[in-house]
Structure formats: C-alpha cells, structure tokens
Amino acid sequence: MSLIDAVARLGRSAIDLVVGLGKAGLMLWGAIAHRPRLRKGTPLLIKQLYVIGVQSMVIIIVSGLFIGMVLALQGYNILVGFGTEESLGPMVALSLLRELGPVVTALLFAGRAGSALTAELGLMKSTEQLSSLEMMAIDPLRQIVAPRFWAGVISLPLLALMFTAVGIYGGHLVGVEWKGIDSGSFWSILQASVEWRQDIVNCMIKSLLFAIVVTWIALYRGYHVTPNPEGISRATTQTVVQSSLAVLALDFLLTAMMFGQ
C-alpha cells in the first residue's frame, strides 16, 4: 500500500469521526432540546427508569458487594502488616467513592443497559418501527430517544451510590465481622475521612458525566445502526467497547482535574 493510500485512509477516518460526532450531536439535540411534555413524557420516562435503572440493580448490587469484600480483604492483608488495619474503613470507602463506584458502575451499566438500549433501538429501526413513528407524524427522537436518555442520566448516578454503599457494607462484613476490626473505629475513622465536597460530590459528578457518555453512545449506535442482524450485533459490540473506553479515558481526565493537585 502506498503512502498516499495510507494518508487518504487516515483522512477518511478523520472525516468519518467528525461526521459521526456531528450526527450524534444532532441526535441528542433533537431529543432533548425542546419543552418537556409532562403529561405524555412522564409515563415514558418512568417506564424507562424501570427498564434501565431498576432492572440493572441486581448486577450492580451483587457486584458492589463482592468488590467491597475483595477490596477489604486485600486491604486488610496489607494494612495489618503495618498495624494500621483500623484504616480499612476509609481505604474501602475512598476507593469506592473516588474511583471504583462511578467507574465500575458505568462499565457494568454499559454492558447491561447500554448494550440493551442499542439492541432495542437497532431492532426498532430494522423492523421499521422508527420509520412508522415518523410517518405517523411523531418524532422518534422525542418519543423513543429522549426518555431513554434521561432515564440513563438519572439512573446511573443512583446506581453508583448504591454500588458504593453496598461495597462499604461488604468491606464491613469482611473487616469487622470476619477479621475482627472494631466496628466503632471502622465507622468513626471512615466518617472522619470522607468529605462531602471532595469525595461524595465528585463521585456524583463523575457518574453523571459517565451516564451522559454511556447513554449517548448506546443511543447513537442503536439509532444509526445498519438495519440488519449483522449491523445490530456489530453496533451492540461497539457500544460496549466504545463506552467502556470512553469511561476509562474520561475517568483519568476527571481524576486529574479533581485530585491532581
């Protein structure tokens, strides 16, 4: 392959990227930039909150419990060597609040809800349900995309909080119930070292941004799918891969901004 071909390919993929970003932006703008319709919009939103949020709870809670437990066990083994096992509480809580809570929840959310959103929209497109909405003079962006977007944005931060809370409880199970750390000092040191602004607000900011990115990618991939089975399966994979990478990259940026100094 000649050099000029390589340059041409690079240029083409850059153009594709910009076109894709433009299409994704237009889609989101079309979905959310309008006056909210409370009477018609609320039932649609509640249904999606159930599908996207509530139905993801099991995987989030179970994962949170195990990750908290593993974190506490590994942490205990290290801390006990220095005789500082009393600090297990803040170690678990801060790891979860600052990093693992938002990031792992977003990754699990991308796999559970994101892929389901892409597949659902892809199926709607390939069975012409989106076209038929348009022909009924109903905007599919407002009817289908908007409630799913808002449901994702609302659900993920709440799921991240649940994940973190359950994780801390898992840490308590291992540290206090199993390894015999004093329950009073576990909780009191934890309380003293977790800060509202630095830890909890930052956790919420992170998971809110992850929610926007993951839901946006999932909806874009589904809405612009090549309408055949192969296209849907490719789009579902792309959703999980791209949103996971986006979450991890964005996490580094945010962490550098929040905790870099």
């Binding site: 012409e128 349900q129 076209s131 022909m135």
Partner: peptide, 16 residues
C-alpha cells in the same frame, strides 16, 4: 401532511 397520509410497512412495523 403526514397526518393526512399513512403507510403500511412491509414488516407491519407494529410496536413490539
């Protein structure tokens, strides 16, 4: 205009 016309899609396109 679209409220004055209607389309029957090949797949039916019923909302599943």
């Amino acid at each position: 205009l679209r409220k004055r016309m209607s389309m029957l899609f090949q797949s039916g396109a019923l909302f599943t």
